[in-house]
Each structure stands twice: as C-alpha cells, then as structure tokens.
Write a protein that binds this DNA or RNA. Sequence first.
RNA 1: GCCGCAGUAGCUUAGUUGGAUAGAGCGUACGACUGUUAAUCGUAAGGUCAUCGGUUCGAAUCCGCUCUGCGGCGCCA
Length: 439
Amino acid sequence: MVREWKQVADVLREDCDGSQVELRGWIYRTRGSNKMLFIVLRDSSGIIQCVGSRNDLGDGPFDLARSLMVESSIIVRGKISPDSRAPGGFELQMNALEAVSPAEPFPITKDQSEEYLRDMRHLWLRSRKLTAIMRVRSTLTGAIHDFFRGKGFHEFTPPIFTPNSCEGGSTLFEVNYYDRKIYLTQSWQLYAEAAVFALEKIYDVSPTFRAERSKTSRHLSEFWMAEMESAWMTYMDVIEIAQEEIKFIIGRILERNRADLEVLDVDREMLGSYLQKEWKVITYTEALKILKERAGMEVEWGKDLRTIEEDKLMEFFDAPLTVIQYPKETMAFYKPMEGDAPDAPGPVAKCFDMLAPSGYGEIVGGSERETDLDALMDSLRKEGEDPKDYEWYLDLRRYGSVPHSGYGLGVERLLSWICGLDNIKDAIPFPRTMKRISP
RNA sequence: GCCGCAGUAGCUUAGUUGGAUAGAGCGUACGACUGUUAAUCGUAAGGUCAUCGGUUCGAAUCCGCUCUGCGGCGCCA
C-alpha cells in the first residue's frame, strides 16, 4: 500500500485538525540550537516551517537533522498547528524525520549574481521565483490552447527543419542535414498558410529560432511563439482575436496563480485593470504624429519605429497598443498593400504590431497575407529572393486562394510583461542566447 | 555589425598618486545556545587577484592581446 503524504499548499489550505501528516520535500532553510531545530521545507507547492526538539525527535534523528544541508531531500511527519511565530502562520511539529538523500553544500547561497544564477540554472530552477514563473508559464500556454480550441481552432504543428527562410535569411540557424544546408524554423507562417485552406482556423505553440545578434534583455535565440492563422479573416479581425486572447490569458493567470503572482510581487489589481481598459488601435502615421506633437520626436515617414520611439509612444498609453499600417516598403514580402489609408503619405501594409506597456516591447506581430500571385512574386524579387524557391508557397495562390490573416505572439515577451520580469531569460527554463547555451 | 561595462576565496565583494603577510560578509568545518525568521556568538580552513605579454626597483592597481560573461543600439517576438 502506498503511504499517503500531503503537499505543503494543501495543509496550509485545510483547516488543521491536529492529525498526523506526512510531508515530502527539500530543505529550504535550517536554523536552530542544540535543543531546538527549525527546518523550512519546500515542495513544488510552497514552503512551511517544521520544528523539532531534541526531546521529540530523539538524539539520533535530531543530530542527523542538524547535519542536513540545504536542498537535502527529506520526509517528515508530525502535527500541523497554527503558530504566530512561523512564517505563513502554520508550522509542523515534527516527531519523525527521514533523510532521503543528504545534499552536498548547495552552491547557491544568500549572495548571487545574475550571471552565476544562470550558470546554476539547473539548480536555480528550484527557487521560489523560478518555480512561480514556470507555473505561470504553464498556465499561460495552457490558456492559449483552451482559448483557441474554445473558438473552434485546430492545433496545427509546423516542421522545425525548413528549407527556406521566411522573413529574411540573415537570422536563420543553419543545420547540416545529411550534408545539405537547411535551417531551423523562424516562423510557422508559410506552412500555416498551406493548412488554412484545409482547416480554415488553426493555431500552434511551438519553438522558434532566430540568429539575431541581439544582446538585450528582450531577446532569445530560441523562444516560443503562439501563432494563429485563419481563412476569411482580415488583419483587423485578427487584431480583435489577439486582444481577446491576451485578456483570456491574463484572466486565467489571475484566477489560477494568485500565490505565484504574490511571490513575483506582481500587482494583481494593476494586472486585472488591463481587462477593463480600452486597448487602442492607431495607425503608424498617427503614431508618428503623437511622437512629434507630444514628445517632440521627429521620425521620418517610412522608417520603422525603433525601441526608443516605441517606449516613448507607450508612455501615452496604459494598455497594450496596436499600431497598424506600417510602410509597405519595410515589410516582409507576404504583407499586402492597404488601399484604404487616407492619412498615409505613402503605401502601407495590412499589418500590425501590438506593443506591451512599460517597455516590454512588441508582443504580437501579424498581418493579412498577400493573395495575388503577381504581387507576391514582385515582392519576392524585390527582397532578392528567387520565386522558384517558393514554388509550393506560390501554388497556394494558384488553387483557390482566399483572404487570410494571422499573427505570432511571443510567449516569453508576454510572460515577462505579465510577471514584471526584468529579463526575458527568466521567462524560459533554459535560455539560449548568442553567448549562452548551457546548462 | 556598432558602442559600453565587468572578471579578486565556493558565492557577494573591499582594495588609487603603483609599495611589504590582499581585507570582509555569506557558505563550509568545529564549538556554544530550547522559538529561530536567509538566527546569534567564538574558532578555523579556504586566494597562481581570468589568461598571456609589456612598463617598473616593485603591478590586483598602469598599458596591450586573448578568453569569458553582461548590457545598450540596430533587427525582431
């Protein structure tokens, strides 16, 4: 028969009736004297203080317990009781303690640098901060699946190895594939466009690889994108879906990760307020006007918004902002021209970016897709690509194309914003950047 | 690709006109302590000052190369 044990969060939640419980976990902290011992026990659900006296445990177990170091795995038994002196308000009065596996001196102690913690990532995952983040991450990706499935979307998984680029080849990771050169995927998009004529409404959550030489707190070489693509929808339609999706995610996290948000020191009221606020949509041309009139920043029409301009722009908005209709010139080949843009001095694309508040940058990028075969081939040539390399993609326009749109949401960017992280590297378990591939 | 910052015990660090045995806190070991909140007190071990080269009577300190990491720009999610 399997012996029963409980999780820390469960015993803290239940009314403690004074009965005997067993807990299994790891030593988070120890302190004490030669008569009295305090062990803060950690499991995946939380921490609780366990108290033992030499009298209650006996000399052998007591001395063993005193010798155990942080992160030793243990099983303890005793009675839960309220105590104002215990962190969390409850503690376990131990009458038995069993060492499962004593730990060597744990390398992570009180003083830690970010760099060291990243070297020790395999151990730092056990920290309250990282566990909280990873739990929120799990809620986040789970919410994406629930959101799209609830709307009749099908999960569609793209290949990770791809023969050609999607948005410019300079940022692709090359792979030796049976002595041929191929690449790790940068976006599911071209494949999604093939699938959309079969399934109509699709989504995915999958890894993406970009060899951008970016060394910032907002970039990873390997990250996860949550993408959607839908037949018959315009880019304005999918903007609404993106807004709905993110609100759904935030709502789900507020509902399920209360304790984690507390550990991360996230202002839950602030987070909840985004669900009430209006998420504005403005054009690129309007954005330039705002920058000029309210911030005195002059941006030449046609130039892409840079980080400094995006950050400035977001100072005037208190919820995610969608900027639409960027100049066609700077956009990827598959983004079609918007004919109806009276305020723009030049051709603009049916595209959008969603910017998160407080400097977290672009969290979503999307567009309508070009359906006209000739326009597509022209754009490809302009980007220096050979249309021949895109034959199968161009086929999609030859056999019953329909208007369709989609977007990609950066999972780690969104998680960083929601959790208030100061570095995107903490939003993924084992970050891969230009300078770091281990652990 | 461009610009900037950093590297001293296991960890966090002090260390400037260049000067003799490079200080400390945490952690660890041993000891004391019956209510601690990353306890406190005592003792101890632990350092080729990232590497290589140069300047100098003398380099952790000044100069140069290299290595490693971090951040900003650009690009992007």
